[in-house]
Write a protein that binds this DNA or RNA. Structure first.
Lengths: 254, 254
DNA sequence: CAGACAGCCTGACGTCGCGTCAGGGTCAAG
DNA sequence: CTTGACCCTGACGCGACGTCAGGCTGTCTG
């Protein structure tokens, strides 16, 4: 199978001129020419072009791309791994920028104005601590989430049934404590909260007390979670939230 | 408060030369000069530079950035909304590229080789159907998800309780149908599936039959959803999945 | 008060990754 | 045998700066 410049250009979403350029600078050379001098690209050339386009998209100068691809010590798998890592970094950066724009919008609506430092944080070299903290707040891109993904991907159906049962068991005991009039900040309720925390740590991701406290706050702030607990028993959302936060305070104090 | 070029450059993460350039082309002009001719930037200039940097990051040519920012009909909030949308689009694109690289890695490990079309899908103009389909599969970044976010953010606790009850009602009737031996591809079961689909469309996001079919597949492929249905009744996951897909086929056929 | 040094200024040329003609050959279809 | 789509090789242009060069400013130090 072979392709002409035009065909490859359409296939790869670049212009013919770009392919001419890559040929000229020796970055992607057609492995053959027809008798009339037409460029003829084969499968390996496509391979190469694909790699080039990923690195290009990532902002590498073409010369560096060439040295990367011509390095005999780097096998294709290594390139893929590197590209994967870089793409994920870019994802994080973009996500941080989304967060920054959202923050700006919110500040504007509330009549607050951000400090210049806050406003340019995201443009730095991408490694200011503030930026890191912001990223952490966006679930779905935290280390905990990644950890959770890694662990849960290995779970079988039986595991899930067991985990769900475990969770519902603690919820039931929380509801019972509430019904019995046990105060939410009593040691008994805090013990239940601690059990809840350890369940999360065991089954999903490391959940230190501070993170657990964050979850607790969410149970009363996010309607969806509130609804979940309210359906089990009225007042349970706040009860669990209080117990979890009391437990977090106890553990960080003690 | 005012800043010199060097200070602003450090703050914003750009070079002094860049600020000189922006001044020259009239994109970001310091609102004052000292008696010695030094550039002196004030808060509004920072504002402007920030906007410029976001648009630049998004790949706009500087001249277009200038016309965008100098458009008197576009208020700051409009810019923020536009930037937010564009950043989310970029997020999608990057996510698609991550997915593509992962696919390539997997194919390599399994000794499969992808077709050239598959391999370049992601580089098109960003609007090939295949790419769209791939993106759709990565939940958490689809239009449907965005829609869902918009709608659900307005729901109260009572709404959530009602929605959950509605959902559980359909699930119970599915379980009953299964217990009664009603075939999963019978009209009765398909009617339940249709009700399920309309519930999603009403409460969360437009869910056309094809998307619904995708959800149906997930119920048997993703352990977490399987566990959910299996806990209600053994075999329910596959039952619902089959009914949903049969209904989708019926609706697209009829 | 000299001088050293960091920081500012304005040209002016260079670079990278192509876009965009110009001028001309190739090839399958009608 | 022409037409039109596609291919070729220069060659120039451009956007967004990088990188000197040559010179002024401002502050601190001895």
């Amino acid at each position: 199978m072979s392709w002409t410049v035009g065909e490859l250009a359409r296939l790869a979403g670049v212009t013919v001129r770009t392919l001419h350029h890559y040929d000229r600078i020796g970055l992607v050379r057609p492995s053959e020419r027809t008798s009339a001098g037409y460029r003829s690209y084969d499968l390996r050339d496509l391979d190469r072009l694909q790699q080039v386009l990923v690195y290009r998209e990532l902002g590498f100068p073409l010369e560096e791309v060439a040295t990367l691809l011509d390095d005999p010590d780097a096998d294709p798998a290594a390139h893929l791994r590197r590209q994967h890592r870089l793409l994920r970094e870019r994802l994080e950066r973009t996500q941080a920028m989304v967060a920054a724009v959202e923050k700006e919008m919110e500040a504007r609506q509330m009549g607050i104005s951000l400090t210049p430092e806050e406003r340019f944080e995201v443009f730095g070299d991408g490694f200011s601590e503030e930026y890191q903290a912001e990223a952490e707040e966006r679930w779905c891109d935290t280390e905990a989430w990644a950890q959770s993904q890694r662990r849960t991907s290995a779970y079988t159906k039986d595991d899930w049934v067991r985990i769900k049962a475990e969770g519902e068991d603690v919820e039931r005991r929380f509801a019972a404590a509430l019904a019995d009039g046990v105060p939410a900040d009593s040691p008994a309720a805090m013990d239940l909260a601690e059990e809840h925390r350890q369940q999360i740590s065991r089954n999903f991701y490391d959940c230190p007390p501070e993170m657990h406290a964050g979850l607790g706050r969410m149970y009363v702030e996010d309607e969806r979670f509130t609804a979940h607990y309210e359906q089990i028993a009225p007042g349970l959302a706040e009860y669990v939230s209080t117990a979890v936060q009391a437990n977090a305070a106890r553990r960080s104090a003690g």
